[in-house]
Design a protein around this nucleic acid. Structure first.
Lengths: 185, 185
DNA sequence: TGGGTCATGTAACCTGTTACATGATTAG
DNA sequence: CTAATCATGTAACAGGTTACATGACCCA
């Protein structure tokens, strides 16, 4: 149920189109949630049917017409309800392909596994860099969004990203060391 | 595509029923993958149609009849193929409800958020303890599974669990500190 | 003249969740 | 007598992925 709530959350920053929602997902939320346009438009229809958002068609001359979404009071209430619960449910949804590949590593080729781990490490390094960039943009973002006092929450999100990426990198290094030592036996 | 490969991986330890697969998922793989029986039986049908597993019906008198699954050579080839690739794809599937709740925390109640974080912390502590238990069982497991040299791969999986849980706990503590300091302002 | 941005979606499919159904045996 | 274990699934639904379609404007 969280894509719906992510959309509601973003709409508290202001009314926007599905296209803009998609862009924010890809710019600011990718490190803890991601969504395709197709999914966003589908969810928006559902949110509208539930009465959690209202829409307004805006005709434009130089650009395609657009449909601007606004969160309703019911939508805000639903968001608050979701914010205040469900910690336990989220834990039950772990699905980690890299760990599974390592777990069944004995069936494959050790050199290939090392390459995989190194690629995974590399992705996490890139991710760390992009987070630094996001962190530097926070002040700018706060001005853009017409809402103050958000920075601390965004910072907590970014800290989570750092923690995760760093722990992934440390884990890779420990695995590579174990695999190297194994060779020596 | 990874549940399929998880099943194939487990079947390299030996032939077993859907019921047994489900139990192993809930005992040993929960910390990086989880699956319901309904999904496992559905996937098994697909695996059989693809020719990656073969099945044998076994009639039993004192217990219900059962269907024992065995991995085929094609299945083994598919598993190896999957093991040697796809690191990048896995990274694209992050979906973390707790982080999203923190990210949109300003819309909710700060005390509720703290309670949520503390519950999340608690779940991660429990998880750490269960991992210790799993780690202690590794020798026993290696005897049970008729395959040696697996321990190091299982250990890497468990290390991943430790890293993740510890970084979650550290993150919660940092968040709680930030929220406390905010109050003082 | 080609690629990027703005803006909307549909269709088919795959994967995961929830709830239910059956029925025998065995251990407390 | 009751709950757990063994063992199999189905049905309906929710959520996520991939591929495709349209069309105008703007910049190099």
């Amino acid at each position: 149920m969280s894509l719906k709530h992510g959309i509601l959350g973003l709409l508290t920053y202001g009314s926007m189109t599905g296209y803009e929602l998609m862009k924010i997902f890809n710019e600011s939320l990718t490190f803890f949630w991601n969504a395709q346009t197709s999914q966003i438009y589908r969810e928006l229809d559902i949110l509208e049917k539930k009465g959690w958002v209202n829409s307004e068609h805006i005709l434009q001359e130089d650009k395609p017409n657009k449909k601007v979404l606004t969160i309703s009071d019911e939508g805000k209430a639903e968001l608050v309800h979701w914010l205040n619960g469900h910690a336990a449910k989220d834990m039950m949804k772990i699905r980690d392909g890299m760990t599974m590949r390592v777990f069944f590593g004995s069936e494959g080729d050790n050199d290939a596994l090392k390459r995989e781990l190194m690629e995974y490490r590399c992705i996490n390094e890139h991710f760390l860099n992009s987070l630094k960039h996001t962190e530097n943009e926070l002040d700018h973002r706060e001005q853009f969004v017409g809402k103050s006092g958000e920075k601390i929450y965004w910072l907590m999100g970014i800290k989570r990203g750092y923690k995760t990426a760093k722990s992934n990198i440390e884990w890779v290094d420990e695995c590579l060391e174990l695999l190297e030592n194994m060779k020596g036996e």
